[in-house]
Amino acid sequence: MIRTLSFLALMTATPALAEEVSTGAGAMLRGLDKVNGETTDIKLENGGSASYGPLSVELTECRFPQGNPAGDAYAFLTIREQDNDGVLFQGWMIASAPALNALDHSRYDVWVLRCITSEGD
Rank of each mutant, 00 (worst) to 15 (best):
residue 53 G to S: 05
residue 108 Y to S: 01
residue 59 L to P: 01
residue 92 W to P: 01
residue 41 D to M: 12
residue 116 I to H: 07
residue 69 P to C: 07
residue 6 S to N: 14
residue 2 I to A: 14
residue 35 V to H: 10
residue 15 P to I: 08
residue 22 S to P: 02
residue 9 A to C: 11
residue 97 A to G: 09
residue 68 N to Y: 14
residue 17 L to W: 11
residue 16 A to Y: 15
residue 86 G to D: 13
residue 50 A to G: 02
residue 90 Q to H: 06
residue 107 R to C: 08
residue 96 S to M: 13
residue 32 L to Q: 04
residue 108 Y to C: 03
residue 68 N to D: 14
residue 112 V to H: 00
residue 21 V to H: 12
residue 111 W to P: 10
residue 40 T to K: 09
residue 113 L to M: 12
residue 102 A to C: 08
residue 101 N to G: 09
residue 109 D to E: 10
residue 45 E to P: 08
residue 65 P to V: 07
residue 104 D to M: 13
residue 95 A to G: 04
residue 20 E to K: 09
residue 49 S to H: 10
residue 55 L to M: 04
residue 79 I to D: 00
residue 40 T to P: 04
residue 31 G to N: 03
residue 120 G to Y: 04
residue 21 V to N: 11
residue 110 V to Y: 00
residue 113 L to T: 13
residue 39 T to W: 13
residue 73 A to F: 01
residue 87 V to M: 05
residue 107 R to I: 08
residue 109 D to C: 03
residue 5 L to Q: 11
residue 67 G to F: 00
residue 15 P to Y: 05
residue 89 F to H: 01
residue 5 L to N: 10
residue 70 A to Y: 07
residue 30 R to A: 13
residue 109 D to P: 00
residue 10 L to T: 03
residue 63 R to K: 14
residue 95 A to K: 02
residue 108 Y to K: 08
residue 42 I to Q: 04
residue 35 V to L: 14
residue 81 E to G: 05
residue 72 D to R: 15
residue 35 V to A: 13
residue 62 C to K: 02
residue 112 V to M: 07
residue 23 T to K: 14
residue 23 T to M: 15
residue 64 F to V: 06
residue 3 R to L: 14
residue 73 A to S: 12
residue 33 D to H: 06
residue 28 M to T: 09
residue 6 S to G: 15
residue 35 V to I: 10
residue 23 T to F: 14
residue 100 L to G: 08
residue 4 T to K: 13
residue 89 F to Q: 02
residue 40 T to G: 08
residue 31 G to Y: 04
residue 30 R to K: 13
residue 35 V to C: 13
residue 70 A to P: 05
residue 81 E to M: 07
residue 36 N to L: 07
residue 26 G to Y: 02
residue 20 E to Q: 11
residue 27 A to P: 00
residue 111 W to Y: 08
residue 52 Y to G: 07
residue 38 E to D: 12
residue 5 L to F: 08
residue 93 M to H: 07
residue 85 D to Q: 15
residue 52 Y to K: 03
residue 109 D to N: 06
residue 64 F to M: 06
residue 105 H to A: 07
residue 33 D to T: 08
residue 110 V to S: 05
residue 55 L to K: 02
residue 110 V to F: 00
